[in-house]
Design a protein around this nucleic acid. Structure first.
Lengths: 266, 266
DNA sequence: TGAGTATGTTGCACGCTGTGCAACGCGCAT
DNA sequence: ATGCGCGTTGCACAGCGTGCAACATACTCA
């Protein structure tokens, strides 16, 4: 759209391949050397490009600083919330969002069920880490050493007969979850409540959060709940796309959702 | 230098602070909305900027990808070499460059002493990890858990009477080194050889390599060698600046060094 | 329900600003 | 010395970026 900026930005991926000198940059851009020089100078002033001792150019430190600052200011909760609401409006059940923090998995957002029967949970409260579906997803993505160490440290309370009893069983379950990319908790925390969950990932592919849909037996059976799995996974993927800032999100919330219809485009 | 590009790039740090809408961007740039729109569109096409569901803009994933790709293509050895040569020409002694890899510290570059008496070492060979000055610097920067685990695993051969004897002494030495930002090995590996070293850091401040100057007693005493410490540290800092791609390196190698004098500037 | 406001978007004419050219300085290899 | 390669500079032209005004749509009051 803007020729000058377009050319300047085209230099970045070019330099990402490795250092290059003025002539190479000009050639690959298809512009005169003097033009390339001015573009490089501008990039240099902004610290996006660094000039090394042999006069060649490469990407500069500012790029890292920007990326870091950006990732620190990303707020999953803010980004995910509209999607949670949207999902709730589609299926009616309770929707949770959870993250990992200091050996705990915490609920950081929740949209209440529209059915009269609700489940107990509170934002900010740690989840039942050994049985909750969201916890399984998040822990399954930890580096192996950390995962193993944590599993050994945990207590395994038998909330119900179907609770996970010990570290060995837990690690096995995590391996499965890691493999399949989603998780369930079928009566492992409270006898009558089932739960399905999917992971939300950052730009680097690491799991940064997990979301779940929970419903008591009296409303839907476990089997019926599982039919919602594709929807939950698609929603989590949409949040991932939005959070990681990759391609424009195709799977955007529906019309009554948060996405404001784009004006001027029929 | 280039107004358009300058404006476009000014958007990036602005968005790094957090998401912003078109009006805010236009205001802070001091340009008309339509201008800001075109700039944002161009940034968007290159993936540097992401448009979220609420229409606001924030930094995009391409930025992270670029930063990562850039850091992968950085070659310390290539960047450091001219500085090593330069240092060698200034002081005449053997200069080493070492990095950490899989529980070992390896020499990856070396410039031989100009004195007839040389010390034994080979590029690619692991260093005496418990006594070498470069090893101390690199290990001192490891995360505490990893550092402690490694120290416990190591053997502590008594090359000389002054070799570090055990894990406790080693960890204590590492703490000192970490504190002061440089390291020595005074006859800990070979009775008659002394060595001083300084760290080279990446853009994130972590130690990525270390360089050292080594000389036998018969050439210079330990005291005399230590007078070179400021020079070694300054050189390491200059490499750090160049490697991490921060501000233009002031402490560039001298005229006979690798830096090609800039033509056209009197 | 209606006018009022805020925001994103488009088309257009002006003229600033980016462009390529040619020439120069400088180091390096022959 | 001479030619070659590379980065750099000044300049004249016009291409391209700019701001303006008008439009579209969504939201918010009365």
């Amino acid at each position: 759209m803007s020729q000058t900026v377009d050319r300047a930005l085209s230099i970045l991926p070019l330099l990402a391949e490795g250092p290059a000198d003025l002539g190479q940059v000009a050639d690959r851009l298809g512009v005169h050397k003097s033009t390339a020089l001015r573009l490089l100078r501008t990039l240099h002033e902004h610290g996006l490009v660094h000039r090394q001792a042999d006069q060649r150019y490469r990407l500069g430190a500012r790029l890292f600083a920007l990326a870091q600052e950006a990732v620190e200011n990303l707020d999953i909760r803010e980004i995910a919330h509209p999607y949670l609401v949207d999902l709730n409006e589609k299926c009616g059940h309770t929707v949770h969002l959870a993250v990992y923090e200091e050996n705990e998995v915490l609920y950081i957002d929740k949209v209440e069920s529209r059915y009269p029967v609700r489940m107990y949970s509170r934002i900010g409260k740690p989840v039942a880490i050994t049985v909750a579906a969201v916890a399984k997803l998040i822990l399954a993505d930890l580096p192996e050493a950390e995962r193993r160490a944590l599993a050994e440290k945990l207590d395994y309370p038998m909330y119900t007969a179907r609770s996970i009893p010990n570290a060995a069983a837990f690690l096995k379950e995590l391996a499965t979850v890691r493999e399949q990319g989603w998780a369930t908790d079928l009566g492992g925390h409270e006898e009558s409540i089932n739960c399905i969950a999917a992971p939300i990932r950052g730009a680097d592919g690491r799991v940064v959060a997990a979301m779940s849909v929970s419903a008591p037996n009296v409303v839907v059976t476990a089997e019926e709940l599982l039919t919602l799995l594709p929807l939950v996974r698609r929603t989590a993927d949409a949040i991932t796309r939005e959070y990681s800032g990759s391609a424009p999100a195709r799977d955007t919330p529906t019309s009554h959702g948060p996405a404001r219809p784009v004006p001027g485009k029929p």
